[in-house]
Amino acid sequence: MAMLTRDLRASMAFVERNFNLTKRYWGWEVAWLIYSVAGALSVTLIGHSLGDEQLLLVLVIGTIFWSYLAIVFEFIGESVQWERWEGTLEYTFMAPIRRHAQLLGAALYAVIFGMIHTLFVLAVLVAFFELDLSQANFATAIAFTLLGTVSFIGIGIAASILPLMYVERGAQMVFVLQSVLLLVSGVYYSVEILPGWMQFLSQFSPATYVLDGVRAGLIEGASVGDLLDDVWPLLIMALVFIPAGLWAFGRAERYAKRTGKLKRVG
């Protein structure tokens, strides 16, 4: 029990630290929020200009939920890189905390921040387009969001080992991985229009199933029970990605300590 309390306190230290950083970088946060709103409007206006309500909803949901999942992925995936840039990485790894407590803290703040950011963008889009969500099944959307969040936390943890192992190129690799997820997950289109090899890759992205499920729930009013084909891959990914990510992180930490990669470079 004492260990659990200690872990939770350590996790909350990361949440509080990230909150303080957000506060200190408030100007940039506002700028990114405006950019997110502008980006979401730019994409969804394509659907609006075609007078296609269905396409408009597909684009709105794609924009909103990708924005959320991308924030969760970025915050966790780049957590090591941020510390490397700030020069604090060695201090964090020298502290008597267990790694899962550190990563839980990063994940918790990512989810809170992502939710707030995304809800703001959603509010703007709903107001702008007067979207009709009378048929929507919000329970389905929430269930898929939660499942997708857990999977994306796992992928984020796995991605965060890249900056640990590759001092310069790690952050670039995380960025490329995020770009590939965007491309193959059917954010703005159906994955069925993708070439075969991309469709193959799309099966391994939790975003594919999250967007499928949320769209079916919000546009068609489908229940979670109607969407089991999208639920079980997400469940498996949620169960596999987090333990696999933590295991991989532990291995990467040992590699970094053996090769001296924790040292600040650049």
């Binding site: 630290r17 060695e90 020298m94 502290a95």
Partner: peptide
């Protein structure tokens, strides 16, 4: 604990925010 040649901190944060963060990591 260690003091390194470069004062490695979150430079945008205040001394107290940095110290409070470090203290919490040590329980």
């Amino acid at each position: 604990n260690r003091v390194s040649v470069d004062a490695a901190f979150f430079k945008k944060l205040s001394p107290f925010e940095n110290l409070a963060y470090a203290a919490k990591l040590y329980g």
